[in-house]
Write a protein that binds this DNA or RNA. Structure first.
Length: 791
DNA sequence: GAGTTTGAAACT
DNA sequence: CAGTTTCAAACTC
């Protein structure tokens, strides 16, 4: 490793470090553990503070909105400049490195980066000023972040603006991921906060399986990556990512991975890298953009690579939380990238198209290609199939929808699986492994995580049920890759449901009405959709946004999740599933007359929630909870008196209130504060239908909710969960109740939509917890909280 | 795969 | 707000 180049680089770095600018940057840089903490805080605070913005869909819905919003956001003035510059720089850096001129470039790069960093800092500041916007977007951002790894990087940003975005999704995702994926013994929220390093540690720290990796790698990875990234620059994170995927697959040793990454050399890997490199490049640019947009300091970092690494780290941190250290990281990074792309696709599509032309430099070709593909849309089955290696392309096109299906798949595999968490992780990993590179997978992963979260929330064990679905999920994924767009839908559906992804079949609505599930979910239609005359595509972003606004103007909650499920519910469920009424509530309530709320025609049922007083259903037999308040899962056979609701309705309310109170007490008033949130304990669900979770509309209030908000949510925990549900709940609930605000709760509170401010509890309490899965979540969450005020 | 049922969304 | 129409998913065959 000690190549002269590196030495030079090191020297350059050292010099650079000496420079006041560097110091300044360092101060800002997320790398530092302490700062990361700030970030988290800021994030929390921001997230909380951030009010719903333009898209004001209810917070719960924020996902959806965020998506759309995000798209807009990206275009934020900040990004363009920086992004373009960063991209160029990045390329220059990478290329230079590639050319083995690293040393020179390094120094120069460092300077540049430093300068940039400064500029970035300014930018970030600006962003902060614009936080209001971001706040609005935050939810979205979060989503994207979560979804889009790229945003994660912002985590690095000390400044709240960027952080805010990251925390959103990233946190939620991370949390879940961790929970599911790994049991992180390591509780180092701070590390996470720190940005890069934290992630890895967690991930590695996570036991999940990567022990070997972890030992060597966790810390190593973080630092090493960060530094290596600086040093190795060219290969940068991107390479790593690509490499990692394969490496991880092949190699169990973290160290090896490290080396590999560093060297970025080995043959096959190189090839991959080459493929990835392009992707990486694009990703980098994206990241830089993201960073800039976020105002992340990452960009400010002297080494772009550093930025990447940081991003990776940041991403990885979230991901890392995953049991699988490196894999997660890589995956994460990849996923993030994929997500970014995806986001970009949505968000940036227009922008990029423009920007690409302008910004693209030497590497532009690759970038442009990638982006173009992305712009074209997520899709590109061809790309996917072809590029599985490249990861990049597929990722780009992937829409949340795509993710959704993936998610199923992802969640499915539980290799490690101690818990659902792992599942998510594993899923992601598996995805990575399988297709490793497809961004879709990545995005999917994030998504899946969210969905899984729900599962986790509702019940950790759900996974098993889903597992079955998981396989299908893969299938679905593959389908995605291969598939012809339309056919997939139904094929997938049966499988495992594709639910994960939402596909619509709109013929007349042009996918611009709420009839369209995709549109309603805030996601663009993708290949699998069988829609006709679809305008719900990145290409028609403006139209989509306008339409969305119109609809929201009519009904601000139109895009809000129809079903709000609070994590709380889970606990309750755990406590007494049968007793508890529906954990979640349907936003509006259903109006079923013939289905007795026993079929998916019923939104409540579909959402896995019980009917509530607000429902106007007739003959309600909702297994999740009747309108009358009877929570018992009723078998379909039961005839029910639907009606007593009026009388019982009051009781229900009272019950609900009490439940709420309990939950709120623990969770924090914040939860209660959220307007939307309904916290009812979930009932269990009878569903066997694993498949699908209710439509996208179900959302958990919790952080996971963001993701779930998407259709992805479909994989309702409830659906799959029912079994494990209780058990899990038992474990988890207590803590939650205790007041260890689960990260989720925190997230929820943090949710921009909720406006709720981070509940101190969450932050404070966020102690890494005991439970494997949950702990992770908590950790992740805590980290954020810790950042802020720590007790 | 086609047709029917269903209830939300959209419209009046 | 209520009634009607439109729409697409869910369901059935």
């Amino acid at each position: 490793m000690d190549t002269p180049e590196r030495n030079q680089i090191n020297t350059a770095l050292s010099k650079f470090e000496d420079s006041p600018v560097f110091n300044y940057i360092n101060n800002l840089s997320p790398i530092r553990p302490v700062k990361s903490a700030h970030i988290t805080q800021t994030f929390n605070s921001l997230s909380f503070s951030s009010p719903p913005s333009v898209f004001t869909s209810p917070h719960v819905t924020s996902f959806k909105e965020s998506r759309f919003l995000r798209r807009h956001n990206p275009p934020s003035p900040l990004k363009p400049k920086d992004s373009s510059e960063d991209v160029n720089k990045v390329y220059s850096n990478e290329e230079a490195l590639a050319d083995s001129t690293l040393s020179h470039h390094n120094s120069s790069e460092l300077h540049e980066s430093a300068d940039k960093g400064i500029s970035v800092g300014d930018v970030s500041i600006e962003l902060s000023s614009e936080q209001t916007k971001f706040s609005d977007e935050l939810p979205q951002a979060l989503q994207y972040n979560c979804g889009s790894p790229g945003y994660d990087p912002p985590i690095c940003c000390d400044e709240g603006s960027t952080l805010l975005e990251l925390p959103g999704e990233g946190v939620s995702n991370v949390g879940y991921v961790q929970e599911e994926g790994c049991k992180n013994d390591l509780d180092e929220p701070e590390l996470h906060l720190q940005g890069t390093s934290p992630i890895d540690p967690k991930g590695e720290g996570s036991d999940c399986g990567w022990d070997g990796l972890i030992h060597n790698g966790a810390d190593m990875l973080i630092e090493a990556e960060a530094f290596k990234g600086l040093i190795q620059k060219p290969l940068g994170s991107s390479i790593r990512l690509c490499d990692f995927v394969p490496l991880q697959q092949s190699a169990s040793n973290s160290d090896q991975k490290m080396h590999m990454v560093d060297s970025a050399a080995s043959g096959s890997e190189h090839e991959i890298e080459n493929h990835c490199s392009e992707l990486v490049v694009t990703a980098d640019t994206d990241q830089t953009q993201d960073n800039l947009a976020n105002g992340s300091f990452m960009t400010s970092n002297p080494n772009e690579k550093m930025d990447h690494t940081q991003d990776n780290v940041a991403n990885g941190s979230f991901m890392t939380s995953n049991p699988n250290g490196k894999m997660d990281n890589q995956l994460v990074s990849v996923t993030h990238r994929g997500i970014r792309r995806r986001c970009l696709d949505f968000e940036m599509a227009g922008v990029r198209k423009n920007s690409d032309d302008n910004s693209n430099t030497g590497s532009s070709t690759t970038q442009s290609e990638v982006r173009n593909s992305a712009d074209e849309k997520q899709l590109l089955p061809a790309k996917r199939s072809a590029n599985s290696q490249k990861c990049i392309l597929p990722g780009i096109g992937l829409h949340l929808n795509a993710l959704a299906p993936l998610k199923d798949g992802t969640g499915i595999q539980n290799r490690n699986l101690t818990s659902g968490r792992q599942l998510s992780l594993t899923n992601s990993t598996s995805l990575l492994l399988s297709a490793c590179q497809e961004h879709q997978h990545l995005s999917i992963v994030s998504v899946s995580v969210s969905s899984e979260r729900e599962l986790d929330l509702s019940g950790n064990e759900v996974q098993p049920a889903e597992d079955s679905s998981l396989v299908p999920a893969y299938m679905a994924d593959e389908d995605f890759n291969l598939n012809s767009p339309k056919k997939k839908k139904r094929k997938l559906e049966p499988v495992g449901d594709t639910e994960g992804c939402k596909r619509c079949n709109c013929k007349k609505s042009k996918c611009l009405k709420l009839y369209c599930e995709c549109f309603a979910a805030g996601v663009y239609c993708i290949e699998p959709c069988s829609c006709q005359d679809c305008f719900n595509k990145p290409v028609h972003e403006d139209t989509v946004l306008q339409t969305r606004k119109q609809i929201e103007s009519r009904n601000p909650l139109a895009f809000a999740p129809k079903v709000i499920r609070s994590a709380d519910s889970v606990p309750e469920i755990g406590i007494d599933p049968n007793k508890t009424p529906a954990s979640a509530r349907h936003k509006r309530g259903c109006n079923c007359k013939k289905s007795s709320c026993l079929k998916k025609y019923c939104e409540c049922y579909q959402g896995g929630v019980g009917c509530s007083i607000g429902c106007r259903c007739e003959g309600c037999k909702n297994a999740f909870g009747r309108k009358d308040g009877s929570t018992s899962i009723r078998t379909e056979g039961e005839t029910e008196e639907e009606t007593e609701t009026s009388d019982k309705g009051v009781e229900e309310k009272a019950i609900q209130k009490t439940e709420f109170q309990n939950i709120e007490d623990h969770l924090d008033s914040s939860m209660a504060a959220t307007p939307l949130r309904i916290s009812r304990p979930l009932l269990q669900m009878p569903f066997s239908s694993k498949g699908k979770p209710p439509r996208s509309f179900v959302t958990t209030i919790t952080g996971s909710g963001y993701f779930t908000s998407q259709k992805l949510a479909k994989p309702n925990p409830l659906w799959s969960q029912s079994k494990s549900f209780q058990t899990v709940a038992d474990d988890e609930m207590p803590e939650i109740l205790r007041g260890d605000s689960s990260p989720i709760a925190c997230i929820k509170t943090s949710s921009p939509n909720g406006k709720r401010i981070s509940s101190p509890n969450c932050e404070i309490r966020s102690s890494p917890t005991r439970r494997g899965g949950r702990k992770l979540i908590l950790q992740s969450i805590p980290s954020f909280p810790s950042l802020t005020p720590r007790p």
